[in-house]
Amino acid sequence: MISLKIDGKLVKAERGATILQAAQKLGLEIPTLCHHPALEPYAACRICMVEVIKERKSELVTACNTAVQQGMTVWTKSNRALAARKMNLELLMARAPKVKIIRAMAAEYGIKKIRFPVENPEEDCILCGLCVRVCESVVGASAICFANRGSDRTWSKPFDKASDTCIACGVCTYLCPTGAIQMEAETAQQFRERPGEHRECRYSLMGILPYALCANSFRCAQCEVDQRFRDHMDTHPIFVARNCDLESVSAYHEFLKRVRKE
């Protein structure tokens, strides 16, 4: 166990734990946008910046991916950390001024005026990457990706076409903090309209079951198979993302491997 001080309070955390986890243990809230416990830290939104003082040197780090160290002193609301957080929030406000979660955070941090020009007032994606990452690392489908570079960066589908690998699980829409991804309805509709007698179940596409016919027209919530899996193992990607941490994701992948073998 490692002991450190966060906002003046002493806390013990396991080796390898992040500052964010240690702070949560103390009930201290550090705001995040691109973080999810079921995914590897991405450290891209730069909202969770905290000030760390170590050997009399102070530096700003992201709480989501920085591991705790013995004797570390962390200030989650120091002036330096707050200034950094506010600037990044202001930049995100200029990018996506209508997004609820950003507006709420900005209000909380007392940001009243946006000093930067708003290019697209309708923009709703903040490029946190949750959809892309969950699709790759939890679902294993890689149906969503990023396209372009720098300020042109956007989320997309490979070659901007409806993805063949999408299983319409909807976990991307579930995780999206801003509602920018509304893919479930569209893709599920395509699934339903797919011609032929055999309409493949998403479990079959994921390689879990040799199940080839969906009787429920892809209303997975009503599906007996889906519910059965849920009872067993929380297998639906949404359940994994909702309840789990990284360990459960790997347990889930182990489970997938096992049933695929069977």
Partner: peptide, 11 residues
């Protein structure tokens, strides 16, 4: 800029 993090992309 690759566009991954907020300060570099937007800033």
């Amino acid at each position: 800029s690759c566009g991954k993090c907020t300060p570099c992309r937007e800033g």
